[in-house]
Nucleic acid binder design. Structure first.
Length: 421
RNA sequence: GGAGAGAUGGCCGAGCUGGUCGAAGGCGUUCGCCUGCUAAGCGAAUGUAUGUUUAUAAAGAACGUACCGAGGGUUCGAAUCCCUCUCUCUCCGCCA
């Protein structure tokens, strides 16, 4: 959520910034509604004050006739209050609804661009591997060795579900442990195991709702929503809290399964394990002082990249342009790993700085000093990393000519004496 | 799932026979005094959000409104009474 004062005082600037995102937002409407809202609030508050004063007089009034007339007077005021309050409530509901639909403003460093075709790969890491044979895909290897069971996955759960078996299941578990261990022991994150289901407030807090409900699974009679990413439970741990500045920065790393309907990408990426309704992910979340947000973003990106470096996987960093920024993000970088079998750059991480946008929605504040005014904190997050695509990259990059997969050096400690799977 | 108890400010904890209660008291924190140093002692300050007016380079100031788990109701007036919901604790049942 944006600061209403920013819209109130610099409406044209806000409109200009949002134009860079190539989407529409009802800024003019909000601006007008804000003024109407404040006028109405003023009226209501004055009426309430009148009532309060009269009530205090009634408490002291001795004369029965005067008492009665004052009571009547308050009753009339109450009717007015009721009327005005109803109007105010309607105005505020609309105002809040519109405010929740306004996206975050981009950082000035974000390149202007219409859509993902204008994202900019800024740097490349680790050489692509040279193969003496034509590398095949992870799904061919997986099916041949019976380590991925697509048919049974579809049988028990439907399309876009698969079953990992045997060595691939073990590999995935090893990668999860490896990533968590690295972030927790090497990068200084606190490990978190959160619920995989959350209430609606959380999803509003981090910005998935109200706009993106169609990508979320939920239990309709208990207001329980499956998390689409650990960002949601982790960031919302601090919802409605005022943190001490000595608690900042907060670094959290969490493994969760993630659930997404992926309706909008129907038909896309249907082959393999690249895009499913359920996938595992290790997520990094930071809560920091606003002035530190950008610097923390680059540190977070480095932490995520470190996983790929330790696995010796070729990857690149892509700067996301304004038109491809997600709703809540002010600045975003994707990390894409190269998979030689399917010959694609796969997004394994999306690292975003939200500035105070999510904190405003989730009401996450901090105090600089004991006696200073609470301020909104900045939040950031990034995958560190998304499992299926790291699996694809490992399988396809480490495949051997005889159809096996060599276990990467960094993962050996998670296996016994095995060299290949 | 059944029975009962509870939810108050950073924390603890009064108030709950309705009326200067945004809320006693204590602890904590901050500032000042005192003091070889520290501790103790003494004094003062110390919730959040928002509106109006005013002011500034900023910060602010004055006044108002809302908030005692959430939402509704009764009343001239609700932390206090009534209803619904959520959560916590205790006991019983069930269970990975």
């Amino acid at each position: 959520m944006l600061d209403i004062k920013l819209i109130r005082e610099q409406k044209d600037f806000v409109k200009n910034e949002i134009a860079k995102l190539f989407i529409e937002a009802p800024i003019d409407e909000i601006y007008e509604l804000d003024e109407i809202r404040r006028n109405k609030l003023f009226i209501v508050e004055n009426l309430r004050n009148k009532r309060k004063v009269l009530s205090a007089e009634i408490a002291k009034e001795k004369d029965a006739a005067v008492l009665q007339s004052k009571k009547e007077e308050v009753k009339e005021i109450n009717e007015q209050i009721k009327e005005e309050e109803d109007l105010l409530k309607g105005i505020e509901e609309k105002f809040n609804r519109l405010m929740l639909e306004v996206p975050n403003l981009p950082e000035s460093e974000v390149p202007i661009g219409k859509d993902d075709s204008e994202n900019i790969p800024v740097s490349y890491f680790n050489e692509k591997k040279q193969f003496s044979f034509t590398p095949t895909t992870h799904y061919d290897i997986g099916e041949k060795k019976k380590f991925i069971d697509f048919n049974r996955g579809a049988k028990i759960s439907g399309t876009r579900f698969y079953i990992l078996r045997n060595s691939f299941a073990k590999l995935q578990r090893a990668v999860i442990n490896f990533m968590l261990d690295t972030h927790v022991y090497e990068h200084g994150y606190e490990e978190i195991y959160p619920p995989f289901m959350v209430n609606k407030e959380c999803l509003i807090g981090t910005g998935q709702l109200p706009k993106f409900a169609d990508n979320l699974y939920m239990d309709s009679d208990s207001d329980m929503w499956f998390v689409p990413t650990a960002e949601v439970p982790i960031t919302n741990m601090y919802r409605n809290e005022i943190l001490n500045s000595n608690e900042l920065p907060i670094y959290h790393a969490a493994y969760t399964a993630c659930f997404r309907k992926e309706k909008m990408s129907a038909g896309k990426d249907s082959r393999g394990i690249k895009r499913g309704h359920q996938f595992d992910k290790v997520e990094l979340v930071k809560i920091v002082k606003p002035e530190d947000a950008r610097e923390e973003l680059f540190k977070l990106i480095a932490d995520a990249q470190d996983i790929l470096n330790r696995l010796d996987l070729p990857h690149r960093l892509v700067k996301i342009c304004t038109g491809d920024l997600s709703f809540s993000a002010a600045e975003k970088y994707d990390i894409e790993v190269y998979a030689p079998g399917i010959n694609e750059w796969l997004e394994v991480s999306s690292c975003s700085n939200f500035n105070t946008f999510q904190a405003r929605r989730a009401n996450i504040k901090f105090k600089r000093e004991n006696d200073s005014k609470p301020e909104f904190a900045a939040t950031l997050n990034g995958s560190g990393l998304a499992l299926p695509r790291v699996m694809i990259a490992i399988i396809e990059n480490y495949q051997t000519i005889d159809g096996n997969v060599r276990i990467p050096e960094a993962l050996k400690q998670y296996f016994g004496s095995e060299e290949f799977i």
